[in-house]
Design a protein around this nucleic acid. Structure first.
Lengths: 222, 222
DNA sequence: GTCTATAACAGGATAGAC
DNA sequence: GTCTATCCTGTTATAGAC
C-alpha cells in the first residue's frame, strides 16, 4: 500500500501524491458515473486524470478496489445530507422544504449520481449494509430507528394535533425521495416523451422547487 | 441474416429456430437485466439459453444488436401499458388506481426492469426517441400531446368542477410514476436502511397498493 | 511517485465441420 | 441450425527503468 495512513506515524503523506490520488479519484468518479462500473475503462480514467494507467494500480491496486472507493464516495455524497436533514430538529414543514430544496439543487449539479448509486446497489446489494455502517458507525439493524426517531415523533405530534394524517415514517421518506430523485433518473425519457428542450427541463425543475413541497404536504392533510 | 422475414416470401420460419431465437432472447433478457449491458457476458447468455455462443451471433450478429433487441423488448413491456392507461377513457380517480395497481404488480414480478431501462436510456439517450416512435408510429414531438390529451382534459374538468387543483399533466404523470417505480429501484437501500426482511418488503408493497392512490389523490385536492 | 513497455487474460467474433 | 475450435482485439495488471 502507498503512503496513506502509515502504520508507524500519523504524519500526513508527502507533497505531491495526495493531489494525485485525489485527481485519480475525481477522474474515476467522472468516468464511473458516466459509463457505469462495468462500462468504464481504466485507460479513460487515467487520461481524464492526466496520469498514466500504471499509476491507477499503484494507488488502488485494481479496478475493483477503485470502483469501491468511488462508490463509497458517491454514496456518502448522496445520502448523509438527506438523512441528516430528515433526522434534524427542524419543524416538519421546513424539513420537507429543505430536503426538496437540497435534493433538487444537488441533483441539478450531479444528475448521474442517483442512477449510478442505485444501479451499483442493485448489482451489489451487500454494499448497502457496509454503507449504512460507514455512515453511522453502528450496525445496520440499529440505525433506522435512531435516525428516523425524530421524524416519527414529529409525525405523531402532527397526527395528535390534527394537522396530519397517519403515515409510517418509512413511507414518508420513500415518497419524498421518490418525488425528488426519480424525475432525474427518468430525465431522458421524460424530455423525449414530453418533447422538452433543455430550457423546458430547467423550467420544470424550477417550478418543482415550489410545487413539490405543496404537493407532498397536501397529500398528508388529515 | 437468418430466417426471419425472408425477402422473397412471407412464409414463416422453419420449425426449430423460432423457439431458439426466442430462448436466446429470453436468456439475454435475464442476463442483461441482471448485469446491465456492459456487465453482461455472451457466454452467460448462451449457457442460460442452453445453446452455444456461436449461435447468438448466428441469430443476432453482435452483442450490440442483441442488446438493442432486448432493450426494445424490455421498454415495450414497461411503457405502453402505462401510457395506454394514462390516455384511456377511465375517470381520473380510477385511472390513478389502475396505474398504481398495474405498476406495483408488474414491478413485483420484474423488479430489475425499471432500473435497466432507465440506466440504458441514460447511457443512450437517443434510444428514447426511437422508442417513442416505435411505440406510437409517429414522430416524437407529436406524441405527447395526443396521448396525454385526454389526461389534460380530465384535469381541466376537475379544476372547473372544484374537485382538483391545477397541475400540469407532465407533473401529474411524473409524480405518479415516481411514486410507483422509485421504491423498487431503491429497494436494496431501503431494505437495509429500514432493516426490513423480504416479508416486510412484501407487506410494504401490499400496503402501498391501497395507500398510494389516497396519497396521490389527496395531494391534488384544491 | 511516475513513467514505458509488455505480459496475461477475457471476451466478442468468425471459420468450418456436421 | 447447431456445434467445436480458434482468432484477435481490447483491457486489466505487472515489471522494471528513471
Amino acid at each position: 500500500m502507498p503512503t496513506k495512513k502509515g502504520g508507524s506515524g500519523q504524519v500526513e503523506p508527502q507533497s505531491k501524491d495526495v493531489d494525485t490520488e485525489q485527481r485519480i479519484l475525481d477522474a474515476a468518479h467522472e468516468v464511473f458515473l458516466r459509463n457505469g462500473t462495468a462500462g468504464a475503462r481504466m485507460q479513460d480514467i487515467a487520461r481524464e486524470a492526466g496520469v498514466n494507467q500504471a499509476l491507477l494500480h499503484y494507488y488502488f491496486r485494481s479496478k475493483e478496489r477503485l470502483a469501491e472507493a468511488v462508490f463509497r464516495r458517491a454514496a456518502l455524497q448522496l445520502l448523509p445530507p438527506m438523512v441528516a436533514l430528515l433526522g434534524s430538529e427542524l419543524p416538519l414543514e421546513r424539513k420537507v422544504e429543505e430536503v426538496i430544496r437540497h435534493e433538487l439543487e444537488q441533483l441539478s449539479r450531479t444528475p448521474y449520481l442517483p442512477g449510478y448509486v442505485l444501479s451499483e446497489l442493485s448489482h451489489h446489494p451487500e454494499r448497502a449494509g457496509q454503507l449504512v455502517e460507514t455512515m453511522t458507525g453502528m450496525r445496520a439493524a440499529g440505525i433506522a430507528p435512531r435516525v428516523f426517531e425524530k421524524l416519527g415523533q414529529q409525525i405523531d405530534e402532527g397526527v395528535r394535533a390534527g394537522t396530519l394524517r397517519p403515515i409510517a415514517p418509512e413511507d414518508f421518506v420513500l415518497n419524498l425521495v421518490s418525488l425528488c430523485i426519480f424525475p432525474f433518473a427518468a430525465r431522458p425519457m421524460a424530455m423525449t416523451l414530453f418533447a422538452w428542450s433543455p430550457d423546458q427541463w430547467t423550467a420544470f425543475i424550477e417550478r418543482r422547487r415550489v410545487e413539490l413541497p405543496r404537493f407532498f404536504l397536501e397529500a398528508l392533510r388529515p
